[in-house]
């Protein structure tokens, strides 16, 4: 009992938890006060991460300049959309991840051979922030992030890899299957198993 209590108190003051709150606070300042100094600090922290995230896909071989451009685009969106950021809904890193994902979808879509320009539905209509603002039961988000980070670290290598490929390299399950030569079912079950283990740490589904 004392052991778990001790672990718990230890978990509470791990630096990552504090750091996350810090970034979220900065992002709130950017949103509400349009504070450029806070924005510069956010940029210094997140821009290299965004670039690293984008360059982690070896097959896309994004030239350095294009990666810089994407970084600029993402951070520009971060600045303009920051007023709608709500720290109680998501940690700064999660929110910036969604902004980055939407930029990436936009970019991939512009290059897609299936693009038809007749519609006015846009990325922000599909991945709609308002959806996240609708009420639903959930644990405190920043706490979730911490748990997710911890449980992700404990996953078997193959599940970790599969999830990394989906998120960081931006590949669909079938693309992963094609590239790795694994059956689609195997890819799917690795992703599913990984998610199951992570989600087991914060509730059902």
């Amino acid at each position: 009992m004392t052991q778990t209590l001790m672990n718990h108190s230890k978990g509470d003051d791990i630096p990552s938890g504090i750091r996350d709150d810090n970034w979220s606070r900065l992002l709130m300042q950017v949103g509400q006060q349009r504070n450029q100094e806070s924005f510069a600090r956010l940029f210094a922290h997140f821009a290299p991460l965004i670039k690293g995230f984008c360059l982690s896909n070896p097959s896309s071989s994004l030239p350095g300049e294009a990666a810089d451009e994407l970084v600029q685009e993402v951070m520009f969106k971060v600045w303009t959309k920051a007023p709608s950021y709500d720290a109680s809904k998501a940690a700064a890193s999660t929110w910036i991840f969604t902004v980055m994902r939407n930029c990436r979808i936009d970019m991939m879509r512009r290059n897609s051979r299936h693009l038809v320009n007749s519609a006015d539905v846009e990325v922000d209509d599909i991945w709609d922030e308002e959806l996240d603002h609708q009420p639903f039961v959930r644990l405190q988000q920043s706490r979730n992030e911490e748990l997710i980070q911890k449980s992700f670290a404990t996953l078997p290598a193959e599940q970790k890899l599969a999830l990394t490929q989906v998120y960081m390299q931006g590949k669909s399950h079938s693309e992963i299957a094609e590239e790795t030569g694994l059956p689609l079912g195997t890819v799917k079950s690795r992703v599913r198993m990984g998610l199951k283990k992570i989600q087991a740490s914060f509730g059902k589904r």
Binding site: L49, L55, S56, R138, M168
Partner: peptide
């Protein structure tokens, strides 16, 4: 929302690349 958080935590864990 949880899957977005996973994305967020992967973002904050990933290797950094210097930005000029």
């Amino acid at each position: 929302a949880n899957l977005n958080s996973l994305g967020g935590s992967l973002l904050s864990q990933c290797g950094q690349e210097a930005v000029g």
